[in-house]
Design a binder for these strands. Structure first.
Length: 439
RNA sequence: GCCUGGGUAGUAUAGCCAGGUCUAGUAUCGGCGGCUGUCGCCCGCCGGACCCGGGUUCAAAUCCCGGCCCAGGCGCCA
């Protein structure tokens, strides 16, 4: 409380809070030295903290010699505390600045900063990732992950409101969960174990307990991919719902996208404009394109495909000339999908499956699941996997398994799309890829 | 894993095709000095680099071979 007091009692003033309305407020600012402009009798220090940037000005004539010497010795990215007063100042571009009186250097940068935080000189993504913490200090890069914070928060609140329970499943597992993607091996007390590639089987089992569950967490794929959209440790937003089919969970997903965009627009206006983004809430419902329709279009543009083949990146790029923004591709051939996806009753070569696509990029994948043990066992065998290694999972199906459906959504890819980044690594704090294991 | 293009100061680039004039240019950065309103401040001086290994040649940053690494595209995959 006490708006009156806060302007008279000295205390910390967030850099991002400076405005001409705070004219005369005494206190101190704390943060990192973004840059220094020394004009001789007047020194400007641009200071950056968790809330933004502010300009500190120091008049040499009005400042003790010792303090001036300290300011002249400041290096970029040092942490400093400056006492002074917020002052309305028409000569400052922001219309306000912080007149500094006394300066304390809390932590001095002793070496040349290996990366330009102010952005005056470009750096390659690889260099930026080598110095990721410095890179993240750039306001533009911070903004990406502030938006990411809202995305995660929006997903949690949206799903919880709809009765989904947040769960955590193991990252360390004994056997391959899905086949498909390659797994990383870990040594588990002299036994062989693996890092989970998805929560798939666990979340299916958990619908027999909670009916609706979701999980947001890291998963691992040992694929030697070398693209702008694959990383080996990624964050999956997964849901699974009992007594639902793929159409119902598709609806949850598209409504979630609308909710996420709305929350980002509502809460992150500052970050969006910093990134020059003008995003709009997507229109419902998203277009549903069946696999057969996609094939038909590809045939029209001279890219004929055999039915049963998966869609390639080239195919997906071709589809962007007809389908824009978010859309679903549905009803994939059963052979292109993992064993747990449900084949259509009466037409088992087609599966009750879908991908959520934005442009040419796959963001999410889901479907109705098999809920009958004998069929699941048969599909495991058909997929070239050994049913014996799924014994625990299969046994669950003997004790009351409802029909269910779900999906998994790639968080970094979604953030990449929202923030219009060209490389998923830019939407990952510390990306892990084929060659990068540090920092 | 494949194809194409790359690797020059801390960072980003010029130079390479047409080998010598490169003691390797520029910006930023760091150091020093100057400057009263900057906001990519400005001005002067100084500092700092040819990815690694082999080869061709009188001479290699420049040409050739191998390796490592990077970007984009593709594959795998989500």
């Amino acid at each position: 409380m006490g708006e009156v007091n806060s302007s008279t009692v000295p205390g910390r003033i967030p850099a991002g809070s400076l405005s001409p309305q705070l004219d005369g407020k005494e206190g101190y600012v704390l943060g990192w030295v973004h840059e220094v402009r020394d004009l001789g009798h007047l020194i400007f220090v641009v200071l950056r903290d968790g809330t933004g940037l502010c300009q500190v000005s120091i008049k040499v004539a009005d400042t003790p010699e010792e303090v001036v010497r300290r300011v002249r010795g400041i290096t970029n990215e040092s942490v400093v505390k400056v006492w002074g007063r917020v002052t309305r100042e028409p000569k400052a571009r922001a219309g306000v600045e912080f007149k500094g009186r006394e300066v304390e250097v809390i932590s001095r940068t002793e070496r040349t900063v290996p990366y330009d935080v102010t952005g005056k000189v470009d750096a390659k993504l690889d260099t930026r990732l080598d110095h990721r913490i410095l890179d993240l200090r750039r306001p533009e890069n911070r903004a990406i992950f502030l938006i990411g914070d809202t995305v995660l928060s929006a997903c949690r609140s949206f799903l919880r409101e709809r009765g989904f329970i947040e769960v955590r499943t193991p990252r360390i597992i004994a056997t391959a969960t899905e086949g498909g993607a390659a797994l990383f091996e870990v040594n588990y007390f002299d036994r062989r174990a693996y890092l989970a590639q998805s929560p798939q089987l666990y979340k299916e089992e958990l619908v027999t307990v909670f009916e609706r569950v979701f999980e947001i967490g890291p998963f691992f794929r040992a694929e030697e991919s070398n693209t702008t959209v694959h990383i080996n440790e990624f964050t999956s937003i997964d849901i699974e719902a009992a007594f639902a089919d793929y159409n119902e969970v598709m609806e949850v997903l598209e409504k979630l996208m609308v909710h996420v965009y709305q929350r980002v627009i509502d809460e992150r206006g500052r970050e969006l404009s910093l990134l020059n983004l003008n995003i709009r809430v997507p229109q419902l419902p998203f277009m549903r394109v069946t696999y057969d329709e996609a094939l038909e279009y590809l045939r029209e543009v001279g890219m004929e495909k055999r039915w049963g083949e998966d869609l390639s990146v080239r195919d997906m790029r071709a589809l962007t000339s007809k389908y824009d923004g978010f859309y679903f591709i549905t009803d994939f051939p059963t052979v292109t999908k993992p064993f747990y996806i449900k084949p259509r009753d009466g037409k088992p070569e087609v599966s009750e499956s879908f991908d959520l696509v934005h442009g040419w990029l796959e963001l999410a994948s889901g479907g109705s699941r098999i809920s009958e043990r004998s069929l699941l066992e048969r599909r495991i065998v058909d997929s070239g996997l050994n049913p014996a290694s799924f014994q625990h999972h299969l046994d669950i199906y003997d004790y009351g398994m409802p029909p269910h459906a779900g999906w998994g959504l790639g968080y970094e890819r979604l953030l990449m799309i929202i923030t219009n980044r060209m490389n998923v690594r830019e939407a990952t704090l510390f990306p892990r890829d084929r060659t990068r294991l540090t920092p």
